[in-house]
């Protein structure tokens, strides 16, 4: 059909020839492939704004770390390396299970799709549990700026780092470290909570039979979001936990 015929037909009937097509295909797309490509493009544009958003936090972290270096090192020493490592492992495995969920949607296997989605939800919740444990620990240690902060823990050295004896003014500056720590891990955790919630909705829809009839876009784009949140953590982990271990 050339453009003249199409124009004539559109003028005649008010819409383009309405042949058989899958129910999820919107009329302004030429086909499922194009619809999926467009959705992926849009999702990436959204993720780029997210990169800029988290990038700003990373940037201020780098600058303040140079500024109040001893405070940032001492602050980092107070985190549990095992908890950060465990959470990194959990998130990477959850990225794998999410990738498998996308694969199950593409190959149209309902049971596998539901299974991998449930696995991803469980791993996401496990990550949040470990994070909540760490936050609770920081609360107990009086490391929460603005709520219950005390520089006492950074004045006399700790069990693992006896040399962490900061002067009082620098010990106060660990609040900058913890402010950024809570801002970054908090925003990341918020993204995880949003992710788990969205995935639960998608799971209910998948349970009712959606996303295994060729309609992959919502699952695929959620996967992109989930992997992005994983990438943010891949950078948070070394910056917050690792790079100051031996300073």
């Amino acid at each position: 059909m050339d453009s003249q015929t199409l124009a004539a037909q559109t003028a005649e009937t008010g819409n383009i020839e309405h042949g058989e097509h899958p129910p999820f295909l919107r009329h302004h797309f030429a086909g499922v492939e194009q619809q999926r490509e467009t959705a992926t493009f849009g999702m990436w544009l959204f993720l780029l704004t997210e990169i800029m958003f988290f990038g700003g936090l990373f940037c201020s972290y780098l600058i303040f770390r140079n500024w109040y270096y001893p405070a940032f090192v001492a602050g980092s020493h107070s985190l549990h390396l095992w908890a950060g490592t465990l959470n990194t492992t959990i998130l990477i495995i959850s990225s794998f299970t999410m990738a498998m969920a996308v694969h199950a949607s593409e190959t149209r296997v309902r049971k596998a799709l539901i299974g991998w989605m449930i696995a991803t939800i469980i791993l996401g919740c496990a990550f949040l549990c470990v994070k909540a444990y760490e936050w609770h620990d920081e609360w107990v240690e009086h490391h929460v700026p603005g709520l219950n902060f005390s520089p006492q823990g950074f004045l006399h050295g700790t069990k693992d780092y006896p040399d962490d004896k900061l002067p009082l003014d620098m010990a106060e500056k660990t609040q900058v470290y913890f402010s950024l720590y809570f801002a970054m891990t908090g925003m990341h955790a918020l993204h995880m909570i949003i992710g788990v919630s969205l995935l639960t909705i998608l799971l209910i829809q998948a349970y009712r039979g959606k996303y295994v009839t060729g309609h992959v876009s919502p699952i695929e784009n959620f996967g992109l979001y989930w992997h992005f949140v994983d990438i943010v953590w891949i950078f948070l982990f070394p910056l917050l936990y690792l790079i100051s271990r031996h300073q």
Partner: peptide, 10 residues
């Protein structure tokens, strides 16, 4: 790690 995630998982 980021490159691997972007290229393959994404």
């Amino acid at each position: 790690k980021m490159t691997l995630v972007v290229l393959f998982f994404m």
